[in-house]
């Protein structure tokens, strides 16, 4: 009988355990759950560690690459997708993954985000969405719902909230999904699907920041916040059968949008081929 490796052994294989642990995240943070799901997705696809590049910006989520035993690039705030674009074009054979947060991708990095979607470049972006700036201590983000408390919205947030899924679809991403840190198996599947997809894939991963968001808004500890995801998540298939008024306090999860469009690097490769063919004819 062959030895079936334990899940923890599999995870361990993809970490830099001797170098960087313990991690910087608060006890109960959802970032570790997303990291676990990402590792299992990569393992399931049997990707070679040397062929995977993980690139991040700045924030709690963006600390993830340091712990992962791949080619890792921890960049400047909001710019991860632009750095990743350079890596992907330079080495199209590599699997390029971006780990970002809601503030990182949607506020300071909003421009790079829409253009990465538009180019449909083969990058898988996992956006850990905790509706707040965690690393700087709890300021409101473009994803913070109206009325909620943050350190820079002490009287309640009076700004509108961003729906990243709609933005990504509108900008041209070919794979758009949403998961949560409660629905771990689904999250793993969604990331796997994103990694398989040729083109720009976005996985909006709802996560908990009980340290700031939860505490300031009296949403409880990590467990209570993760339970909230369980209660309010509505799979996209089920949502289609339910009248819209019943979806008021729900959010949609699952693979929300998928299309087949030509991918940037492929298109560029064809151009190079076409030009070299032309030169040969001369």
């Amino acid at each position: 009988m062959t030895h079936q490796p334990l899940q923890s052994e599999v995870t361990h294989h993809y970490l830099r355990p001797k170098k960087k642990f313990p991690n910087v995240w608060c006890a109960g943070c959802g970032n570790g759950i997303v990291m676990g799901a990402l590792i299992r997705a990569i393992d399931k696809l049997g990707l070679d560690k040397n062929d995977v590049a993980v690139i991040s910006g700045i924030g709690c989520s963006s600390r993830m690459p340091v712990y992962l035993d791949f080619n890792t690039l921890h960049t400047t705030h909001g710019r991860a997708l632009a750095f990743a674009t350079g890596v992907k074009i330079a080495k199209p054979q590599m699997k390029v993954i971006v780990i970002t947060g809601d503030g990182d991708a949607l506020a300071i990095g909003g421009n790079h985000f829409i253009h990465a979607c538009r180019r449909n470049i083969d990058i898988t972006a996992v956006l850990i969405n905790n509706k707040i700036y965690g690393m700087t201590g709890g300021q409101f983000a473009p994803t913070t719902p109206g009325g909620m408390i943050a350190t820079t919205a002490p009287h309640g947030n009076y700004e509108k909230q961003f729906d990243v899924v709609k933005l990504a679809i509108g900008a041209g991403a070919s794979y758009v999904a949403r998961g949560t840190v409660y629905h771990v198996t689904q999250l793993e599947k969604l990331i796997t699907g994103g990694l398989r997809k040729k083109g720009f894939a976005l996985i909006d991963a709802f996560s908990n920041c009980h340290t700031y968001y939860g505490r300031m808004n009296r949403e409880g500890d990590a467990v209570a916040m993760i339970r909230w995801f369980k209660k309010h998540a509505m799979p996209v298939e089920a949502a289609a059968r339910i009248p819209p008024e019943k979806l008021k306090d729900k959010f949609i999860t699952g693979l929300i949008h998928e299309t087949d469009a030509t991918e940037f690097c492929e298109e560029y490769h064809w151009l190079v081929d076409r030009l070299s063919g032309k030169e040969a004819e001369k």
């Binding site: 632009a82 890596v87 790079h112």
Partner: peptide
């Protein structure tokens, strides 16, 4: 490889990414 980026911030970022690749 040539790419016209969305701004100068993205341009230098892509350059650094490619240089590391």
């Amino acid at each position: 490889k040539f790419i016209q980026m969305e701004d100068e911030i993205g341009s230098i970022a892509a350059v650094i990414g490619a240089a590391n690749a």
